[in-house]
Design a protein around this nucleic acid. Structure first.
Length: 214
DNA sequence: CTTTGGATCGTCT
DNA sequence: GACGATCCAAAGG
């Protein structure tokens, strides 16, 4: 399932559910990063301490820190030894909304939570809402039970709960939209971003931010 | 509504 | 020493 080309895995992740800390969201927007073949990928120049998780087995969580203050979460794709990952860019919140609001509110100047539609809209916003940070880099999203050892690569084993991925209602292929990735400066033309057509929880121009409907 | 600039620091050159 | 797989708020139309 996840053990394939990120370009194939990305649309298949739409509709799956990311769970952590009593909070959960349905994946509605993703981007594929194809490792050493992809100039926009962290792994384009080969393995480094930061991107080591991208070379791990399919189903691991790759979390990186950026812009001095944000974390972004990726699902690693197989095969092991080959870098590849799918960046999760937006979720439709489905559980633990109150905890999400509190987490998001704490990081804003006015201390107020954003609208529910914006809770998990954007790659750094969704990690903030769910409470996912770099201490979960290398975590196994598929292992059961939810209590397990990890993360393995950076901080050493510890016993605690962590993020997991659950199957959800898959999207009809006709309901999947596709276009260029966001926020990159290399390979800007590759249409490797996928999202749930019409979803108000999607970031970027395809979202309904401007067309603000109730 | 759109545009612009500041925040803030790990990572790689 | 430069630059992000970003977000937010203030300023401008």
């Amino acid at each position: 399932m996840l053990d394939g080309d990120p370009l194939d895995v990305a649309p298949a992740l739409l509709g799956m559910v990311l769970v952590h800390g009593g909070r959960a969201g349905r994946i509605v927007e993703v981007e594929a990063y194809r490792g050493e073949e992809d100039p926009a990928s962290h792994a384009f120049r080969g393995r480094t301490p930061r991107n080591a998780t991208m070379f791990g087995r399919a189903g691991l969580l790759y979390v990186y820190f950026t812009y001095g203050m944000h974390f972004c979460a990726n699902v690693v794709c197989g095969p092991e030894g080959r870098a590849g990952a799918v960046l999760v860019r937006a979720l439709e919140p489905i559980a633990g909304l109150e905890a999400m609001r509190a987490a998001r509110a704490g990081r804003r100047r006015d201390g107020r939570a954003p609208a529910d539609r914006d809770l998990c809209r954007g790659p750094a916003n969704l990690t903030g809402a769910l409470g996912i940070d770099r201490s979960y880099d290398g975590w196994d999203l598929l292992a059961r039970p939810s209590l397990r050892t990890g993360p393995s690569l950076r901080t050493g084993p510890s016993l605690r709960t962590g993020p997991s991925l659950r199957t959800g209602q898959p999207l009809r292929s006709g309901a999947v939209a596709r276009g260029p990735r966001i926020g990159i400066t290399k390979a800007v033309e590759a249409p490797w971003r996928f999202w749930a057509e019409g979803s108000p929880y999607v970031s970027g121009a395809a979202g309904f931010r401007s067309a603000s409907r109730g």
